[in-house]
Amino acid sequence: MNNDTLKNLLKNGAIWGFIVLELVFFEVAGSWWSLSDNAFMDLDNMLLLLKQSAPIGIIAIGMTVIMINGNIDLSVGAIFALSAIVMLDSMSWPFMEAMGDGAIPLAWLFALLTGCLLGFVNGMVVWKTGVDAFIVTLGAMLGYRGLVFMYNGENPTFHLNWTMVDIAEANVLGFETPALVFLAVVLVVWLLMTRSIHGRNAYAIGDNREAAVNAGIRVGPHFLINFVLIGFLSALSAVAFYSGSGSVNPNDGMLFELWAITAVVLGGTKLTGGRGSIIGTFGGVIAIQLLRKGLGHIGANSETVNLVIGSILIIVLLLDRQLNRKGAEELKV
């Protein structure tokens, strides 16, 4: 029992231990070898880090919910891009232009609705056809990306509205808007997963789907809601990011799905469903971003980041397996 508690502590705390390790390492390495003049654990640096992790982070939070269900969503990158295009393009529609700055919230609304709609399509297909979510969203990843290109060909879409940029770069107590949105999403979804009936059902479905069905939980609509949620969050991520930048390329958001999944898995969510936490994913997102910044801080090539993150993902998996071993009596299959 004691051993189990230790294991659980290790499992749940691992990501935070890792973050502390990163902080200490980069701080010490940075100053000892005089690779950098600045301190690493600098407040501004940390605030910037939070802002930079927002786009992937917001999506990763949604991915956590989907993966706790035992599903996966590979189309988030394309949803991200399409929502961004809708937002920027809608600003130049005649009736929107006529509204001036009043069009901004409307543009956001259009983007978020786009995300919800695309998520809704995925959810309905998963529910009604019974095709595995991996395949459905793999198809949607291609299909939605096709829609992105069809919208504006291979050209970038832009629309710069200075009011929108100001809002995106607004600063509350040092937190810029994307960081605030990210933190708010973490808080709300955390409450959803830990306090609400929907959230608790999500764990039950991922853990033991048959038991959940037998207990009368309607799995189909539940999946649908979560796919709409991740669509919404992908669009929200686009809103937070592109309001400031004002320009979107049709290839933007590619591989976001893989980064998001990496963060979720690092945060301790099981691929098979039923286990995982929003806070863990938050940790996973921060850990990845720290690694990116930290390696830059000590002067390592930015290229090594991918190498290190990939290796860490595999090592985490190995450690997890070691922790879950049953010992010598195990059946060898």
């Binding site: 893989l258 999944i261 990496t262 898995v265 691929l271 290229e303 090594t304 980041v305 991918n306 190498l307 290190v308 993150i309 990939g310 290796s311 860490i312 993902l313 595999i314 998996l317």
Partner: peptide, 13 residues
């Protein structure tokens, strides 16, 4: 899935 996802990133690096 996770191993080859990790390898995707690692090989890219």
């Amino acid at each position: 899935l996770i191993v080859t996802l990790g390898m995707l990133s690692a090989i890219h690096g």
